[in-house]
Protein backbone atom coordinates (compact mmCIF):
# COMPACT_ATOMS: atom_id res chain seq x y z
CA UNK A 1 0.00 0.00 0.00
CA UNK A 2 1.44 3.39 -0.95
CA UNK A 3 2.00 6.10 1.65
CA UNK A 4 -0.49 8.29 -0.19
CA UNK A 5 -3.18 5.61 0.10
CA UNK A 6 -2.44 5.13 3.80
CA UNK A 7 -2.89 8.87 4.39
CA UNK A 8 -6.17 8.82 2.50
CA UNK A 9 -7.56 5.86 4.43
CA UNK A 10 -6.66 7.51 7.72
CA UNK A 11 -8.48 10.64 6.65
CA UNK A 12 -11.58 8.63 5.76
CA UNK A 13 -11.64 7.12 9.27
CA UNK A 14 -11.43 10.63 10.70
CA UNK A 15 -14.16 11.92 8.40
CA UNK A 16 -16.57 9.10 9.25
CA UNK A 17 -16.02 9.73 12.96
CA UNK A 18 -16.52 13.48 12.52
CA UNK A 19 -19.78 13.07 10.64
CA UNK A 20 -21.30 11.07 13.47
CA UNK A 21 -19.90 13.29 16.22
CA UNK A 22 -21.14 16.46 14.49
CA UNK A 23 -24.59 14.92 14.33
CA UNK A 24 -24.51 14.16 18.03
CA UNK A 25 -23.83 10.41 17.97
CA UNK A 26 -21.50 9.64 20.84
CA UNK A 27 -21.39 5.82 20.70
CA UNK A 28 -20.57 3.98 17.53
CA UNK A 29 -18.21 1.28 16.35
CA UNK A 30 -15.87 1.76 13.45
CA UNK A 31 -13.75 -1.13 12.25
CA UNK A 32 -11.65 -1.44 9.15
CA UNK A 33 -10.37 -4.11 6.81
CA UNK A 34 -7.42 -2.85 4.80
CA UNK A 35 -6.92 -4.92 1.66
CA UNK A 36 -4.58 -4.64 -1.29
CA UNK A 37 -7.33 -4.11 -3.85
CA UNK A 38 -9.95 -2.48 -1.64
CA UNK A 39 -10.55 -1.26 1.87
CA UNK A 40 -13.79 -1.69 3.81
CA UNK A 41 -14.95 0.54 6.65
CA UNK A 42 -17.65 -1.00 8.88
CA UNK A 43 -19.72 1.46 10.85
CA UNK A 44 -22.25 0.33 13.43
CA UNK A 45 -24.58 2.97 14.90
CA UNK A 46 -27.66 2.72 17.09
CA UNK A 47 -30.76 4.82 16.33
CA UNK A 48 -29.30 6.41 13.20
CA UNK A 49 -31.62 9.11 11.91
CA UNK A 50 -33.37 8.02 8.69
CA UNK A 51 -32.68 11.38 7.05
CA UNK A 52 -28.95 11.18 7.76
CA UNK A 53 -28.82 7.57 6.58
CA UNK A 54 -30.49 8.52 3.29
CA UNK A 55 -28.21 11.54 2.94
CA UNK A 56 -25.13 9.37 3.39
CA UNK A 57 -26.46 6.83 0.91
CA UNK A 58 -27.24 9.50 -1.69
CA UNK A 59 -23.94 11.36 -1.44
CA UNK A 60 -21.62 8.39 -1.08
CA UNK A 61 -23.16 6.22 -3.76
CA UNK A 62 -22.38 8.77 -6.46
CA UNK A 63 -19.78 7.95 -9.05
CA UNK A 64 -16.23 8.36 -7.81
CA UNK A 65 -14.18 11.02 -9.60
CA UNK A 66 -10.45 10.50 -9.45
CA UNK A 67 -9.58 13.95 -10.76
CA UNK A 68 -11.51 15.63 -7.94
CA UNK A 69 -9.99 13.22 -5.45
CA UNK A 70 -6.43 14.10 -6.42
CA UNK A 71 -7.33 17.79 -6.18
CA UNK A 72 -9.23 17.92 -2.90
CA UNK A 73 -8.39 14.82 -0.87
CA UNK A 74 -6.46 16.82 1.72
CA UNK A 75 -9.78 18.36 2.82
CA UNK A 76 -11.14 14.98 3.86
CA UNK A 77 -11.48 14.69 7.60
CA UNK A 78 -11.95 18.41 8.02
CA UNK A 79 -15.66 19.00 7.51
CA UNK A 80 -17.18 21.94 9.32
CA UNK A 81 -20.82 21.60 8.50
CA UNK A 82 -23.25 18.75 8.93
CA UNK A 83 -24.19 18.40 5.28
CA UNK A 84 -20.71 18.23 3.77
CA UNK A 85 -20.48 14.67 2.55
CA UNK A 86 -19.49 15.47 -1.01
CA UNK A 87 -15.78 14.97 -0.50
CA UNK A 88 -16.27 11.65 1.28
CA UNK A 89 -18.43 10.58 -1.64
CA UNK A 90 -15.53 11.26 -3.95
CA UNK A 91 -13.31 8.78 -2.11
CA UNK A 92 -15.74 5.95 -1.52
CA UNK A 93 -16.94 3.73 -4.34
CA UNK A 94 -20.17 2.65 -2.69
CA UNK A 95 -21.89 2.10 0.64
CA UNK A 96 -24.00 -0.87 1.68
CA UNK A 97 -26.55 -0.24 4.40
CA UNK A 98 -28.31 -2.87 6.51
CA UNK A 99 -30.82 -2.32 9.27
CA UNK A 100 -31.30 -4.70 12.19
CA UNK A 101 -33.84 -3.34 14.67
CA UNK A 102 -32.49 -0.03 15.94
CA UNK A 103 -28.96 -0.82 14.75
CA UNK A 104 -27.64 0.36 11.38
CA UNK A 105 -24.67 -1.31 9.72
CA UNK A 106 -22.92 0.73 7.06
CA UNK A 107 -20.15 -0.74 4.94
CA UNK A 108 -18.12 1.80 2.96
CA UNK A 109 -16.00 0.33 0.17
CA UNK A 110 -13.02 2.06 -1.42
CA UNK A 111 -11.08 0.48 -4.23
CA UNK A 112 -7.40 1.34 -4.18
CA UNK A 113 -6.28 3.96 -6.68
CA UNK A 114 -2.60 4.33 -5.85
CA UNK A 115 -0.55 1.31 -6.77
CA UNK A 116 2.03 0.11 -4.29
CA UNK A 117 5.61 1.14 -4.89
CA UNK A 118 6.98 -1.49 -2.54
Amino acid sequence: MSKQEIKLLTKIVRELSMILLIHGYRRFTLTTDYGKAETRFFLNVKNLDDELRDHIEEKVNREREIEVETYGWELVGDIDSHSELEILGLLIDYVEIEQDGDETFLTFVRKSMYKSKE
Binding site: Q4, I66, E67, V68, E69, T70, Y71, M113, Y114, K115, K117
Partner: peptide, 12 residues
Protein backbone atom coordinates in the same frame (compact mmCIF):
# COMPACT_ATOMS: atom_id res chain seq x y z
CA UNK B 1 5.60 8.70 -11.96
CA UNK B 2 2.61 8.06 -9.69
CA UNK B 3 1.37 5.28 -12.02
CA UNK B 4 -1.87 7.20 -12.52
CA UNK B 5 -3.68 8.37 -15.63
CA UNK B 6 -3.04 11.94 -16.81
CA UNK B 7 -6.77 12.59 -16.48
CA UNK B 8 -6.51 11.94 -12.72
CA UNK B 9 -4.86 15.35 -12.45
CA UNK B 10 -6.99 17.14 -14.98
CA UNK B 11 -8.33 19.79 -12.60
CA UNK B 12 -4.75 20.72 -11.71
Amino acid sequence: SQKLDFKSFFIV
